[in-house]
Simulated assay, not measured.
Amino acid sequence: MKDIKSTYKKNGSTNVSPEPTSKKSGKRAPRRNIPGRLFLIVLFIFGLYVGFGYLVSIEPLRVETISLSGNNVIVAADITPVVKGYLKGYRFWPYRNDSIFVLQKKDIKEALFLKFKRIEGISIKKVGLKEVEVVVEEKEGQYLWCGEINSLGSEDTCYIIDANGSLFDVAPQVSGDAYFKIFGGQVDGESPIGSEVFSLEDFNKIIEIKDELDLHKLSPIALLLYDDGLIEFIKKTEDKNLYEGARIKFTLLVDYKEAIDNLLSALNSEPLKSEFAEKEGLLQYIDVRFDNRVYYKFK
């Protein structure tokens, strides 16, 4: 049977209507299981995390030995317990703190700095797979703080001062003038260690004045620090009593550099120049606290 096509004329032309077609039936695309795949990925990553944690925490990779180097006063017996305290437990499960690969260097350094004020610098090195070496640099102190002024000559305990003017350790019992001693000032708290007797600015002024005095036959062995800003350097003497030497008086409230210039000018001018050369051992005091004036007295 022939297909019948409908035709009609319009404006003298013949149009042919399209042949009706049947709608094609299509297949539905399979739905992807996204949540399941994400779960497998997360499970795989977690497995790697746990597996690697157990791997780096096996016994052959655990720290057993702690060594100390660079020390002069601090001993290994004091350092070791602090370090071992950070080797216990887990950093985060299953990563053990005593694993050579999980070592908490930053935390150990902070704990050692906090406990030992004598330490200037620290580095922590891994030696093989089972040893940690703690390398310390200790502060060097040339000056001592020995308490209040009234303890002058009878000081029992002195403390070493670091380059920033802080007290960082008890000084060894040393007689004589091996150390420059400072008396006066106050400290905060029950223990002087870690305290500052004076500001860093004032401390630097004091040391600069001391260094100038050392260069001009006025080497001081001690300093008296008063509350009103007055400071008295005690000149080194051959007398049996170390603190019987002449007093050189300054104040921290005015320009100390100008005071030093005035002192040096007076020492190089008459009449003090000749008197000092002849009667140095009899000098009682030199006072440079006043503008452009130097007062002195001999016994």
Rank of each mutant, 00 (worst) to 15 (best):
K84S: 03
R32G: 14
F203Q: 05
K10H: 10
Y95G: 10
K235I: 11
L225T: 11
T80H: 06
F44I: 07
K279N: 06
K205G: 02
F168K: 02
N97F: 04
S69Y: 00
S199T: 15
S199Q: 10
Y226P: 06
D3I: 15
P35G: 06
I161C: 00
S166D: 13
L152Q: 06
G194H: 09
N164C: 12
P172L: 08
Y54T: 05
K109Y: 04
L252S: 11
S175I: 04
K125S: 14
I234S: 01
A111W: 00
K88N: 13
R31Q: 15
Y90W: 08
S199P: 00
L272P: 07
D228G: 06
L167I: 02
E137P: 01
L87N: 08
G194M: 08
K105V: 02
F180Q: 09
K210I: 00
D156Q: 13
D156P: 05
D239R: 03
G141C: 06
F44R: 13
S25A: 11
G36E: 07
I234V: 09
S166T: 13
I206R: 05
S25R: 03
S274L: 08
V132W: 00
N204K: 15
R62T: 10
E275G: 14
K106P: 08
L43P: 04
L230M: 15
R118K: 03
D211I: 09
V187C: 06
K139Y: 14
T80M: 12
L103A: 11
T14Y: 07
L267I: 10
R96H: 08
S199K: 05
P60N: 05
I108Y: 00
V75W: 03
I4R: 00
P220K: 11
L215P: 12
G51Q: 02
S6L: 15
E270P: 07
E148R: 01
Y90Q: 08
G147R: 09
P35M: 12
A222P: 05
I182E: 00
I149H: 01
G128V: 04
I66L: 10
I45D: 06
Q186R: 03
T157G: 02
Y86L: 12
T21K: 08
Q186D: 08
N241E: 13
L230E: 15
G147C: 01
E148K: 09
E212V: 14
L152H: 05
T21A: 04
I58H: 07
S199D: 07
V73D: 04
K249F: 08
W145I: 14
L48C: 07
I286V: 15
L223E: 06
L200Q: 15
F183D: 00
I34G: 00
G185Q: 01
A266Y: 04
G229E: 03
I124C: 00
I206C: 13
V102P: 02
G89I: 01
S17N: 04
K249S: 01
V174Q: 11
I122A: 14
I79D: 07
V82W: 01
T14G: 01
L272V: 05
E19R: 14
I209P: 02
S25Q: 11
G128P: 03
V288K: 05
L242D: 07
Y256L: 04
E280I: 01
G281P: 10
L43K: 05
P20Q: 08
V16S: 12
Q104C: 07
A76Q: 10
K27S: 03
K10E: 13
L215V: 09
D188Y: 07
P30Y: 09
K109N: 01
T14F: 00
